[in-house]
Design a binder for these strands. Structure first.
Length: 429
RNA sequence: GCGGGUGUAGCUCAAUGGCAGAGCGCUACACUGUGGAUGUAGUUGUUGUGGGUUCGAGCCCCAUCACCCGCCCCA
């Protein structure tokens, strides 16, 4: 029982007990595998940055409302990074001439945002970022979408459970123009579209007209556009994108959806978001798109890119709800060496050294105890092989090896223990 | 920042304003050289915190903190 003065965790942070840590590492590893399958390099940036870095490019809300900012001991303001893209821009600009483009980079690390914690959102989270820079084509966009699909597949989410919805900013801008919506109102109209799924149809109509940026007839036209799932056929970019997705073998995962807008300002072409189709979490699993002028504010040459980000929270909830979490095995070793009693303690310890020298990872029970207790510990830790050196084995220079999986045991010469164990481990397939 | 909900044993949850409980877990034993099954016994609390009402508060009132759900924003 913890004392009454237990110090609480910081709001919106999570503690990672071994079980949660295993999930975090699992997501990290699956992200790494998907990225590496496409030839992306791993990189990272500082977790601490100056607020100035974000002031230029990130949205006002992100900087002013949602960043953790504090003064260091010298009085300078420091920000816990709320996103990675500005750091990416700076690092690329600094070495633009000597980097080998196209650049394919990925990263998995912690980020902080000061917002209200709720389902799918915490203040401290881990995010997978992956970008291709220096290429501006629908085929490049398709590659990033294919990476996202590869990841979804690898964690057990088939197209029947998760879909990547795609749209194109330029296509929508053209549609807005055709409806006579003023360019300066595009952003607000996009906001309307973003909000539509969360409101009742009539309420949304009223809300849209209330804003005064759209007429009744424009609203009708907009609804036509948003309901037209064949609209992509009139976009040369999207036609090429879908052909490329087919060639990359991930077509099943992707659907055109004119309702996908994405709030971030810097997207200029293809945009996409992946959702769990059961809808228990109404947030995107991942989201991204194409952006231009990444380096405009940090003094680099013009550079176009495409990328996406995935937080660990939403995907973690979805995998857990669907029973897709990998089985948690508490112990990293498959072997427990028991300590029979005080007199045989070091005898067992020397066995652990012999096994490790033979490349078998082993856990030793740390002190003598009843064998029942030690076996129970092995069971709880998911350890499948237990060795015993009691007085009989010690006298005969032997070791008993028990396989808890099938409850069989054999007693072998000490020199044969490693081989016996290796054989059991291999036979598990 | 705004709105709603919930806080009781390690966990999941009960308890008309009247003795704070169950299941799971944990420990021991049955089985003094063997886990996962079973049985028996044992173990667990400042009912989030601080005030108030009352003869009496887990329950009612106020405040506060934490968490959850939604809005905003977004991974």
């Amino acid at each position: 029982m913890a004392s009454k003065s237990t110090i609480q965790t910081v709001k919106g942070t999570r503690e990672f007990y071994p079980e949660e840590m295993a999930l975090r590492n699992y997501l990290n590893q699956k992200a790494a595998s998907a990225a590496q399958a496409f030839g992306y390099q791993e990189w990272d940036a500082p977790f601490l940055e100056t607020i100035d870095l974000y002031a230029a490019k990130s949205g006002e809300e992100l900087v002013k409302e949602q960043s953790f900012v504090f003064n260091d001991r010298g009085g300078d303001p420091i920000t816990l990074r709320p996103e990675l893209t500005p750091s990416l821009a700076r690092m690329i600009a600094a070495r633009q001439p000597q980097l080998a483009f196209p650049l394919r980079w990925w990263s998995f690390g912690p980020f902080w945002r000061y917002e209200r914690p709720q389902k799918g959102r915490s203040r401290e989270f881990f995010q997978w970022n992956i970008d291709m820079l220096g290429v501006n084509s629908p085929e490049a966009d398709a590659e990033l979408i294919a990476i996202a699909a590869t990841f979804l597949q690898s964690v057990g989410l088939p197209p029947s459970m998760a879909t990547i919805f795609v749209n194109n900013r330029r296509l929508m801008d053209a549609q807005f123009d055709a409806l006579g919506i003023l360019p300066e109102n595009r952003l607000e109209v996009s906001g309307l579209v973003d909000r539509r799924p969360k409101m009742a149809p009539e309420a949304w109509d009223a809300y849209a007209l209330e804003k005064g940026i759209i007429s009744q007839s424009q609203l009708e036209g907009l609804k036509q556009v948003l309901g037209n799932y064949d609209l992509w056929q009139s976009s040369a970019e999207l036609v090429r994108l879908f052909k490329a997705l087919e060639a990359l073998g991930v077509k099943e995962y992707v659907k055109f959806d004119p309702n996908i807008m994405r709030g971030l300002l810097y997207y200029t072409g293809t945009v996409f978001e992946a959702f769990d189709l059961s809808g228990s979490v109404r947030r995107a699993i991942l989201g991204g798109g194409r952006y231009d002028n990444l380096l405009a504010d940090v003094g680099g040459e013009p550079l176009s890119g495409v990328g996406f980000a995935m937080g660990d929270v939403v995907i973690g909830i979805i995998l857990q709800e669907k029973g897709l979490l990998p089985a948690f095995v508490p112990s990293p070793t498959a072997v427990l060496v028991t300590i029979f009693d005080e007199s045989l303690w070091l005898n067992s310890f020397s066995l652990t050294a012999e096994l490790r020298a033979a490349d078998v990872n082993v856990t030793a029970y740390p002190e003598p105890a009843k064998l029942a207790k030690q076996f129970k510990f092995a069971d709880r830790m998911g350890i499948s092989i237990v060795t015993v050196i009691g007085p009989d084995e010690a006298a005969a220079g032997q070791v008993t090896v028990k396989n808890l999986k099938n409850s069989t045991q054999t007693t072998v010469e000490r020199a044969q223990v490693a081989k016996t164990i290796t054989k059991i481990l291999e036979s598990k397939g």
